[in-house]
């Protein structure tokens, strides 16, 4: 299978100036922030606590960076930092999603009589 994906081309294209990537990242950040803000303003006050633990679980995505640091064998120092980071982020991810679900399970509508 020939490897000729745009993504790879983009990365190896010498005409792409170093500033482009950070700028694209900035676009991603700003737009994601707007999307987030738009959705979150529609979350009822009823669910604000689950919202916070949900976003907390989602921001446990730092795990992604931690995994690389823990497994890349850059240096013993990095591996240790990465290991602690993986543990901390996993507590957030697993705990965050589980507690959010436990809370959401409690919200019940009135039974029709």
């Amino acid at each position: 299978m020939p490897v000729s994906f745009d993504l790879v081309l983009l990365a190896s294209d010498p005409t792409v100036t170093p500033l482009t990537t950070p700028f694209l990242q900035l676009y991603v950040f700003v737009l994601a922030g707007f999307v987030g803000f738009q959705i979150i303003t529609k979350v009822p006050a009823l669910l604000h606590t689950p919202l916070m633990s949900a976003t907390n679980a989602i921001s446990g995505i730092s795990l992604v960076g931690s995994l690389v640091a823990a497994g890349a064998d850059y240096s013993t120092y990095s591996t240790w930092l990465g290991f602690i980071a993986v543990t901390a982020a996993t507590i957030n991810v697993v705990g965050g999603f589980m507690i959010t679900d436990r809370m959401l399970k409690m919200f019940k509508r009135r039974e029709r009589k």
């Binding site: 991603v28 994601a32 987030g36 803000f37 303003t41 916070m52 976003t55 989602i58 921001s59 995505i61």
Partner: peptide, 16 residues
Amino acid sequence: VLIIAGALDGASGFFL
């Protein structure tokens, strides 16, 4: 994905 998830979290916390 880190940028996006972080931005969602940041926006949510800021709004609250």
